[in-house]
Simulated scan of single mutants.
Amino acid sequence: MITSNGYVLDERPERLGRLEAVPASLRDDRDALWERIRRDGYLYLGGHLDPALVNDFRSYYFGELEPTGLVAPSGVAEGIDADGEIDRGLTRSTLFDEIVPGDQYAALTSHPTIRGWFQWFLGDDVHLHKRRIIRHTRPGENGIGTATQAHYDLVYLREGTDRVLSMWIPLGDCAVETGGLAYLEGSHHRVMAQERAGRLKMPAASITADLPGLADEYDTRWLVNDYTAGDVMVHSAHIVHASTDNVDPARRIRLSTDIRYQRISDPIDWRWQDHWSDEDGL
């Protein structure tokens, strides 16, 4: 049973499917990749990063947060949940004052295998938005607001270009049961049509936590996958996506980061040029 924010996803074939990874034969074909992202709204690049790169950052992240009570002392490298109360004030200060503005996070998000890929794919010098988000979800958390609700990124990035691309990076293995990202198949086509018609000039907000209801409304499927360390997802600003609940029986904490790159020559949303904070209003 797959859930998101406590809602049970409909697992019939017409409502649930698997993401399609880019075949190895197309990985170096930029035109084919552009055709694919226009068609699907996403590029699933399996094994794009060295697994050691993301696993080393995972170990660093949970090592920094160990004093908060988040992780079991014997499970820091793996990010095993301590299953107890945490010091929320210390968690917040460690995350926003140390990890987010820190050198380790900057090195990961601007790594040549990431920045260089965007330069190649976009055919221009690129800009990485300074507002980069790290999320961790403890196993057993459920109910509205615990998993990422259905949304598309453009509603949060309206002051710049709509040609910004997001990269979602699972920081460690991330199966569906650990709270991986899910995409609403083909939703970017409907969203772009509604944007062109001027019907979606809404405030920055999620669409809904009710993923099965949204799949019925769009008459389409949620696409999921079991991600492994080194996989990345690149997606357009228009495709609707969300995450599943973390019900990992091994009590692994789900950890991921999402970052945004664009051509430096396109308009840049000025509100995204400061470090991420839970009080930045975005």
Rank of each mutant, 00 (worst) to 15 (best):
S59F: 02
N225K: 08
Q194R: 15
D258G: 11
R260E: 13
Q194T: 08
V232M: 07
H189N: 07
D125M: 02
I253G: 02
G186K: 12
F57Q: 02
H275W: 15
R252M: 02
D269I: 10
W34F: 08
R12T: 14
V100S: 14
R36E: 07
R135S: 01
Y61S: 04
E64N: 00
A72S: 14
H275C: 07
Y44I: 00
V191I: 15
R15G: 12
P170M: 07
Y156N: 07
S4Y: 00
K201A: 11
H235V: 08
Y42N: 03
D87K: 03
L9W: 10
D103T: 12
F62H: 08
D274M: 11
T208C: 13
I264T: 10
D87H: 01
I268D: 07
R199E: 15
V234A: 06
S206Y: 11
L157V: 03
Y261Q: 04
A204R: 07
A197H: 09
M233G: 01
F121W: 05
G180Q: 00
H111F: 02
R158M: 14
F62L: 05
L122R: 07
S206M: 00
P67V: 09
P170G: 04
G140P: 03
R115K: 12
D245R: 04
S277L: 15
L43C: 09
D153Q: 09
F96Y: 15
D173F: 12
V224A: 13
E177G: 10
A182N: 02
A193F: 06
E177P: 00
L65M: 09
R221F: 09
T257I: 05
S236E: 10
I80M: 09
I133V: 13
L16T: 05
G172I: 04
R196M: 05
W168D: 04
Y60L: 07
I2V: 14
E64W: 00
I37C: 02
R39T: 12
F96C: 01
D226T: 05
H48I: 02
G46M: 13
A215H: 03
D269N: 11
E85Q: 11
G41F: 08
L108F: 14
R12A: 14
T3S: 08
W120R: 01
D231E: 11
E85N: 10
G145I: 04
T109N: 12
P203F: 02
A250W: 03
E35K: 15
I253L: 10
I169R: 01
D173T: 13
E217Y: 15
A205G: 05
S59Q: 12
A197P: 04
